[in-house]
């Protein structure tokens, strides 16, 4: 089972080390990670994709809550949330393949953000499966380089992840 955890933390040096260190120390596996500031500049939000059964998840949440700099941990349910990743993909092209690649970019509502003689840089956002699908299709043209962000997620509707703990 994969879970997406939204962790609100104090925006201070070393906090990411505390969170990441806890995962490795307790034998929990981080599948993806994204960090950034929130609407409140004193608070950062770490989104971590973690896999494991309910017991493991319960332990992860409790151990995270023990960290003094962790303000709130919440499990974002996949079916009631918006999930996004972003990828930059550099694809090798020539005169014969450029048009076809651009067509795929169009279909995926992705963007070409850099054009070179022998390559294109494509920016794509979406959930994990969309980015995986795009990667699959582009592979035949030769992916020279790819970089993906960790996943970020937000509850749909009025539900919030707020800083008041529990």
């Amino acid at each position: 089972m994969k879970h997406t955890l939204a962790i609100l933390v104090e925006n201070k040096p070393g906090v990411l080390t505390r969170v990441a260190g806890l995962f490795s120390r307790r034998g929990f596996n981080i599948e993806s990670l994204a960090v950034g500031v929130t609407e409140n500049k004193d608070i950062s939000r770490i989104t971590i994709l973690v896999s494991g059964d309910d017991n493991i998840l319960e332990q992860v949440e409790k151990q995270l809550n023990k960290l003094i700099d962790v303000i709130r941990v919440s499990d974002i349910p996949a079916d009631e949330s918006v999930n996004r990743e972003l990828a930059l993909i550099k694809v090798g092209v020539d005169t014969t393949t450029r048009a076809e690649v651009m067509q795929i970019v169009d279909i995926f509502r992705a963007k070409i953000v850099d054009v070179g003689i022998k390559s294109l840089v494509i920016e794509v956002t979406g959930d994990e499966s969309k980015i995986n699908a795009m990667e699959q299709l582009l592979r035949q043209f030769g992916i020279k380089e790819m970089v993906r962000t960790g996943k970020i997620a937000m509850n749909r509707g009025a539900k919030l992840v707020q800083s008041e703990k529990r």
Partner: peptide, 14 residues
């Protein structure tokens, strides 16, 4: 300037 705080404010620790 030394002033010892009366209370702690730790929103992540209760």
């Amino acid at each position: 300037d030394f002033e010892y705080p009366q209370e702690v404010k730790l929103r992540g620790y209760k």
